[in-house]
């Protein structure tokens, strides 16, 4: 049981985090809250990749002269790290654009809460 927890808790927590983010996007009615939920969804996806790069007993992805490169098991897998760097950038920029949209909406309707927004749009 403990072994199972050790092996899978990260994935399970991340699935939970994804669902929480989804909850924020689906149920919360404030646009800013939706943006925050969106950010969580993205972060959980990014972490999901990173968990897959983890190796028991390995070191960071900078070449260490003492270790050498003969046994790749001694370094974490650098590929997901790289990919997730890109993904984080994308997430941040999406966040920036969504803030811009929120401001544009607020400028037009003076609210960010969906019910009153829908009312004012009529």
């Amino acid at each position: 049981m403990l072994e199972f927890i050790e092996g899978y808790y990260a994935y399970i927590f991340l699935a939970l985090l994804f669902t929480i983010g989804l909850y924020g996007m689906m149920v919360k009615r404030n646009l800013m809250k939706k943006i925050l939920g969106m950010s969580m969804v993205q972060i959980s996806t990014i972490m999901f990749w990173l968990v897959s790069a983890f190796k028991e007993g390995a070191g960071v992805t900078v070449l260490n002269e003492r270790i050498g490169v003969d046994n790749p098991d001694l370094y974490f897998n650098p590929l997901p790290h790289t990919l997730m760097l890109t993904a984080i950038v994308v997430a941040v920029i999406t966040l920036g654009v969504s803030f811009a949209l929120a401001i544009a909406i607020y400028r037009e309707y003076q609210t960010l809460d969906e019910p009153s927004l829908l009312e004012r749009m009529k």
Binding site: V51, F54, V60, F76, M84, I88, V89
Partner: peptide, 20 residues
């Protein structure tokens, strides 16, 4: 998040996440 990333060995990503 950044702390967990460090714990997962992704220092580059952790650094980025912290900065960002």
């Amino acid at each position: 998040t950044a702390a967990i990333m460090v714990s997962l060995g992704a220092v580059d990503v952790a650094f980025t996440e912290a900065v960002v």
